[in-house]
Design a protein around this nucleic acid. Structure first.
Length: 568
RNA sequence: GCGCCCGUAGCUCAGCCGGAUAGAGCAUCGGAUUUCUAAUCCGACGGUCGGGUGUUCGAGUCACCCCGGGCGCGCCA
């Protein structure tokens, strides 16, 4: 099925052709409901091109346009806008069609891509902290949306499991490890030995040197050191898995940096041979002299000491994803500070001749209420697990107050769905580049643009169906008359127009804001239009509207990675 | 020094390729419930879109300059 936007755009194209005018100008949702439902500035664009009067051109277009089945007679307004107002019958019919469509009107992409979404990327031997939530939640949502739109999506967690810090971890493991503590809380113990080793190393040159030697041995394939590294990595991954389970986040691959180790010498050789890289001051470096942005920002791909760094493994990663995974699109959901790094990696990939779509999807920081990077009172990173658990606890308290008689198991389930949903939604409802200020009160607020507010709309609908004694509505015909019904049905029809827009610029907040407006329209409808008490035909029609709203809310939240409870 | 991002109501934020009188939420104030979950709804108050210049029929949006904040720039990841 087609959206109203598509239908009207098609009619507009036909009218332009019939008027002997080129097909220009876009047709969009009206900026302001007072102007109607859709608008186009085609006449103004044409007037500018041809030096004619925009309102006259608009009249000419209107003389040739036929939208009778969908909209009232279009009008010219302002400087030359053409406004369309949908007919209630058309809205009702569209809503009825949506009821019969599993995809709620959302079309599959006509040009499906084979995508890797690279997101999450925690570091081994360190706890996941609040800073990881954005990449994780944003990447997950984008992957879900891309998949729903018909793309072939692979989710890859590029774990930070290699690097110079392992010299210290291994030294600490050999000299300071408390096995019992490791069994109790592996990451905490790994952090402890790392920190203590680091402290000693800054004071004591011999320890510093010992750490370096441990690293050299690890990179040379020393059996004992490799085994220690492996244990540390496995223990960390097991901890991450718990957090991912709580977040309902799943990966197809978790290829850490170490996965690419054996490919690094080959990468450097190839780049040297092809002349992309050169030796400079003992290191192997790629210069970008013909690129104004990168002219004075070379990338090092092999250090003076022969070691490789993360630029090297990221190049190997690009090659692997294209050649082995057969992907044509790579999305990197990684913080804004790494913009330069990805510019370099992508520039190198282009020089190697890869013709693929490479995107860095950056995002801003999470700040505390003091507007500085969010830290604990003692200045540490805030562990993600603690945040999630606190969110759940806070919701649990509210559930206990509101629904003391609910079975404990259901309370646990609800607290998780709302608590986790609130944390995710707080992040996703905001434009990804703006630093966002973490606030429990705002996140879990029962009013306003929050996950609980959206979940509540769904819950109210489910409650209606429980009272009605039906799981869902049985009819597929919708009649609408009340303004609140019309508003709601229009909103429902917009879902299919909104979802694809998210991928234009990787902005799930567009979808979040839409869902908020939908919930808002539903609540208004709920107040104004009794469902179960109303007379037949109206009753079934309103039930159908409720059903459709519930499905759009559930699907929309699902695309954001958020679950809905049946009661709350 | 070079580069990137951000600056919109008291607070937190929307506003994708430039489109009409700049929108929400929170807070404040005023209303609404014998009715399907008040975890709700309706209304009011609130703005030199950091400043300036320019491009344009039209600029919060584009270009340039400046101010403020954050971040990144050869051997960490």
């Amino acid at each position: 099925m087609e959206t109203f936007q598509e239908q009207l755009a098609q009619r507009l194209s036909q009218a332009l052709a019939k008027s002997g005018l080129p097909n220009v100008g876009e047709l969009s949702q009206a900026a302001d409901g007072r102007f109607g439902d859709y608008q186009t500035s085609a006449a103004m664009v044409l007037a500018k091109q041809r030096g004619e009067n925009p309102r006259q051109i608009a009249e000419k277009i209107l003389a040739n346009i036929d939208v009778d089945l969908i909209a009232e007679k279009p009008t010219v307004a302002g400087a030359g806008f053409i406004n369309f107002k949908l007919r209630p019958e058309a809205i009702a019919k569209q809503a009825g069609d949506l009821l019969g469509d599993e995809r709620l009107g959302v079309a599959r992409s006509t040009s499906p891509r084979k995508i890797v979404v690279d997101f999450g990327s925690p570091n081994v031997a360190k706890p996941m902290h609040i800073g990881h939530i954005r990449s994780t939640v944003l990447g997950d949502a984008l992957a879900r949306i891309a998949k729903f739109l018909g793309h072939d999506v692979v989710r890859d967690n590029h774990i930070g499991d290699w690097g110079t810090q392992f010299g210290m971890v291994i030294w600490g493991w050999k000299n300071l490890l408390d096995r019992q503590a490791l069994a109790r809380d592996p990451i905490a113990e790994l952090v402890r030995i790392y920190k203590e080793t680091n402290e000693r190393a800054t004071k004591d040159e011999t320890i510093r040197e010992a750490c370096r030697q441990e690293l050299v041995k690890l990179q040379a394939g020393d059996e004992e050191n490799f085994s220690i590294w492996k244990q540390a990595a496995d223990l960390s991954m097991a901890e991450f898995a718990k957090t991912y389970a709580l977040l309902d986040i799943h990966y197809d691959f978790q290829h850490g940096e170490s996965f690419y180790n054996d490919q690094l010498p080959g990468v450097v050789d190839r780049l040297l041979k092809s002349g992309i890289a050169e030796v400079s001051e003992g290191a192997v470096v790629v210069f970008f002299k013909d690129d104004v942005d990168l002219a004075d920002k070379p990338a090092i791909i092999r250090k003076k000491d022969g070691g490789f760094n993360y630029a090297t493994s990221d190049i190997a990663t690009v090659e692997y994803r294209i050649n082995e995974l057969k992907r044509d699109t790579l999305w990197y959901v990684v913080g804004a500070p790494q913009t330069l790094h990805f510019k370099q990696i992508f520039a190198i990939a282009r020089r190697e001749g890869f013709d693929v779509d490479l995107r860095h999807i950056p995002f801003g920081n999470i700040l505390g209420e003091d507007r500085k990077l969010m830290k604990t009172r003692s200045g540490e990173n805030v562990p993600l697990q603690d945040v999630l658990e606190e969110a759940i606890e806070r919701v649990r308290k509210i559930v206990d107050e509101k629904n003391p008689d609910m079975p404990n198991e259901e309370k646990i389930d609800i607290a998780r769905k709302i608590g986790i949903g609130a944390v995710k939604y707080a992040d996703l409802s905001q434009y990804r580049m703006t630093d966002y200020i973490f606030s429990w009160d705002r996140m879990l607020a029962l009013h306003g643009n929050t996950a609980p507010y959206l979940q509540n709309a769904y819950v109210r609908i489910r409650s209606i169906f429980r009272k009605a004694g039906a799981a869902r509505s049985t009819i597929d015909k919708i009649d609408i008359v009340e303004p609140a019904e019309i508003n709601l049905a229009k909103k429902l029809a917009q879902f299919a127009e909104i979802v694809p827009q998210v991928l234009n610029d990787f902005r799930p907040n567009i979808l979040a804001n839409y869902l908020f407006e939908l919930a808002n329209s539903f609540h208004a409808f709920y107040e104004a239009c009794p469902v179960l008490q109303s007379e037949e035909s109206t009753r079934t029609s309103r039930l159908a509207l409720c059903e459709l709203t519930a499905r759009v809310l559930q699907r929309g939240l699902n695309l954001l990675g958020i679950e809905v409870p049946e009661r709350m």
